[in-house]
């Protein structure tokens, strides 16, 4: 089995005095190059699962393997490096850096691990901006963009280092249905072009339907796992 992400017996508790269990003994793997949806009600634990897969959060016990590497054994700097090179994040709230322009935001993941951007890298950023329809706003500050433009900038940023995995938490959550449809088309295209593994949390049943696999989380457990 070529699983790029493998979750083994993961439990997650929150709180120190009053402990609340959010994930119960979760076991799941995602295949390389697959396009997956995670659905579930608010508070079901789906975001927690995504954050644990993204190494932003630690499991209380159990193990996480990314690209066959055991992340629970890594230190903070190794995790930062892993995130920078292997994982791209797209959040519901775009989380751009308001002090930087569209182009600079997109180049940021590259700048984090490298010194100077070569012309090839700048061309790549141009290509991504072109793909996302951002060329005209390239030098705008992140605050001078529409909601859709901001979200597309965040997607372009997630793609910059050509990560093997993209984790998206309701990427179209605050966009209108037409823009949502466009964003979804984009993600699908990227999946097909770059063979990037996608794991998308969504409330939107129309998006979930178009993925290869739908995992439903309920009360911190995997309730159903439907592979097309």
């Amino acid at each position: 089995m070529d699983n790029i992400i493998q979750i083994k017996n993961v439990n997650k508790f929150y709180g120190t005095t009053i402990k609340k269990q959010v994930l119960f003994d979760v076991n799941i793997g995602f295949k390389k190059g697959s396009f997956n949806a995670i659905i579930g009600q608010s508070g079901s634990g789906k975001s927690t699962l995504l954050n644990i897969m993204g190494t932003l959060d630690n499991p209380s016990d159990g193990d996480v393997y990314i690209n066959h590497q055991k992340t629970t054994a890594m230190d903070k700097n190794q995790l930062a490096d892993l995130r920078n090179k292997t994982i791209g994040f797209i959040f519901q709230f775009h989380y751009l850096l308001p002090e930087f322009t569209v182009q600079e935001n997109i180049l940021m993941p590259y700048a984090i691990s490298n010194r100077i951007a070569s012309s090839a890298i700048l061309e790549k950023a141009d290509y991504l901006m072109d793909m996302m329809g951002l060329t005209t706003v390239k030098n705008n500050l992140a605050t001078q963009l529409s909601g859709g433009q901001q979200q597309r900038t965040a997607i372009a940023r997630a793609l910059m280092n050509q990560p093997k995995i993209i984790l998206a938490d309701e990427p179209t959550g605050n966009l209108d249905s037409e823009t949502s449809e466009n964003v979804y088309q984009l993600l699908r295209e990227i999946n097909e072009t770059f063979k990037t593994t996608f794991i998308i949390i969504t409330h939107d049943p129309r998006i979930a339907e178009k993925t290869d696999r739908i995992v439903e989380i309920k009360d911190g457990k995997i309730h159903s796992d439907f592979i097309k």
Binding site: L56, N77, A80, D81, K85, F89, M108, P109
Partner: peptide, 14 residues
Amino acid sequence: RQIGILKAMGVKDF
């Protein structure tokens, strides 16, 4: 917020 985003993208604590 910005520091959090940067760290999510792989900026090290140092």
